[in-house]
Amino acid sequence: MQTDALLDRFLTSLAPLAPVAVWAHGSLAGGDYQEGRSDLDLIAVLERPATLSTVRRVVILHRALRVEPLATKLHCSYAAADRLGDPGHKHLTWAHDHVLRRTVTPVTRRELHAFGRVLHGRPPAGLLPPVSDRELGDFVVRDQREFWRPAVDKARLWKQDIWVDLGLMTFARATVTLREGRLISKRESLDLLPGLGAPAEVVADIRRRRYADPHPSNAEWTARRGELTRSYLGPAIDALVTAYG
């Protein structure tokens, strides 16, 4: 698989940074990975905090990977081992073809402990502090209230596949986490969405593009799909936040 070839090359290129561990989370670890469609979400744990020299090495490393077909989908946070205990710390991250800073969210931390895939070195237990149910729930509510709910009011966003897909799947996953305290896959979220009142034709569209035919939608359906999604998500998020916030 192209994914395996990319990961092998990435791990070899990473050797000069001497990572303590490299972990996969998200779809790659959770069993719902779709080659060519899913992102490869990784965390490399370094012995020391990133320096300017580390940033340069990371940029060179990822630019060299561009010859690999799936390289643009590989996202990696470079976390210092002694900073993993600080949930608010923003770690050096390569994503979307550039350097930025990101936290390791409670959802990611729970994923790593529950089903994280160890690609190199030590497992998450012992390096990464666990996340409590309260911390996870508070984060999920805050994400729905402060990120997704304001985004619903920006109509232009919902003409894009990624907003429709992630908006609905993240809502379903948040609902299960708050109700039952567990994480579910994107595939499972699609199975649950109709029962949560989501528009069935939009859910079918996401499933088709994710698991069958990725051919883009026409402009008329794209516009209608966006409005159906926004009309559903706004009240649904409001109700979820009211119930659990």
Rank of each mutant, 00 (worst) to 15 (best):
R83L: 11
Y244E: 02
H120D: 12
T222N: 11
L92F: 07
K73L: 15
V59R: 14
K73Y: 14
T54E: 01
P123R: 01
D191R: 11
A44M: 05
W163L: 09
L193N: 09
L183I: 08
P129K: 03
I43E: 02
D8G: 07
D191K: 07
D238Y: 10
W148Q: 02
A50Q: 04
G195T: 10
D97F: 13
L92D: 01
M169W: 03
N218T: 05
H91L: 08
W23S: 02
A29S: 12
V104A: 05
L178E: 03
G181P: 10
M169I: 09
I43Q: 03
E220T: 13
L196C: 09
A21C: 04
V140C: 07
D82C: 09
E227P: 00
P235G: 05
E227T: 11
P194H: 09
D32T: 12
F10K: 03
G88N: 09
V45A: 05
T3N: 03
R9C: 11
T51A: 15
V131M: 06
R210T: 08
G167N: 07
D82H: 08
V22L: 08
I237K: 06
R230M: 07
P150W: 07
P106T: 06
P216G: 10
R145S: 14
V55E: 13
L14P: 00
L11N: 05
G121L: 03
L190D: 06
V152C: 08
Y244A: 01
A212H: 12
R134M: 10
R149A: 15
E201C: 11
L196S: 06
N218R: 12
M1I: 02
H96N: 15
R101V: 00
D82P: 07
A239G: 11
R101H: 14
L28T: 06
D165F: 06
E135K: 13
G88I: 02
G234V: 00
W158V: 00
